[in-house]
Design a protein around this nucleic acid. Structure first.
Lengths: 144, 144
DNA sequence: TTAATCCCTATTGACTAGATAGAGATTTAG
DNA sequence: CTAAATCTCTATCTAGTCAATAGGGATTAA
């Protein structure tokens, strides 16, 4: 299961992607219209900023905007920031590989083989879905 | 990431699948040869028993054996017991559906659409991998 | 210089993961 | 029949994580 943080992050980013072309948007606007606890959202956006997914503008009339084109921000990108690796085991993570603590011999581990296939399938999907396509879906279904 | 409990469960079940035809195997044998804390393994096997994945035999010379043919026990079956639903969100879980707490309108949720595709991809893989095929892989690579 | 914004650190409460302890119940060998 | 070996059950502990909140500090523009 993804965390609440991940849900908030995705909702906030979709908000930015949808109303994206009129300068920065304030935390409080996002928090109110997406029903996200304001302080929690601050922390989330700060993390997203550190990885370049969003950009911030300080001072009066400051706020947040996407750090790059919406079509270049995938669901995988976001989940990796909020929830860590997509993989079901560190030993099959591409972005954050680590040997399992008690692994005997990785090359013949039957568990690893299954988890690796699962990771590849998940990553293939989540890397192909991005904010632009998601926002477009919303527009098509009349939600925007 | 899967839990430590899931790892232990899978290792224990592979142990049973590999040495499966000579009557029940004791917890202590599994615990020692798979390096799993004994008491923790007891709890895990008890849970696996409740769902029919293993069968127990009490008393002297008792122990555990698989509850059904190894080819009918998928990785998905095991992970569902130890770690809950495979899905990344309750609203896309097939075995344990639940509406998201703060969902506005499920049918047009763009997040849900991506998570649904991810669930299907993961489930497809994990339901196709089973203890029999995993044990066979181990045999082929000379681990048994 | 003031007000609006983002930035940062610390803290809290609830919950879960992983592991352990100690008895109780059941079966079978002798 | 009884003793030993097994599984069964309930309770507990510790450390860590999740979700949320608090209270300022830094920056910018009007």
């Amino acid at each position: 299961m993804i965390s609440q943080k991940a849900r908030y992050a995705l909702r906030a980013l979709l908000h930015l992607a949808a109303r994206g072309d009129g300068g920065p948007i304030q935390i409080s606007e996002i928090a109110e219209s997406e029903k996200i606890p304001r302080k929690f959202l601050e922390a989330i956006l700060l993390e997203l900023k550190k990885t370049g997914i969003v950009r911030s503008h300080r001072g009066r009339a400051g706020g947040y905007s996407l750090g790059r084109s919406a079509k270049d921000i995938s669901f995988a990108d976001v989940l990796r920031v909020t929830d860590g690796p997509l993989a079901l085991s560190p030993c099959v993570s591409v972005m954050a590989y680590r040997k399992c603590d008690d692994c005997f011999e990785e090359s013949i581990c039957a568990i690893r083989k299954a988890l690796l296939a699962a990771r590849d399938a998940t990553a293939q999907i989540l890397e192909s879905r991005n904010l632009a396509s998601a926002a477009q879906q919303l527009r098509r279904s009349g939600a925007l």
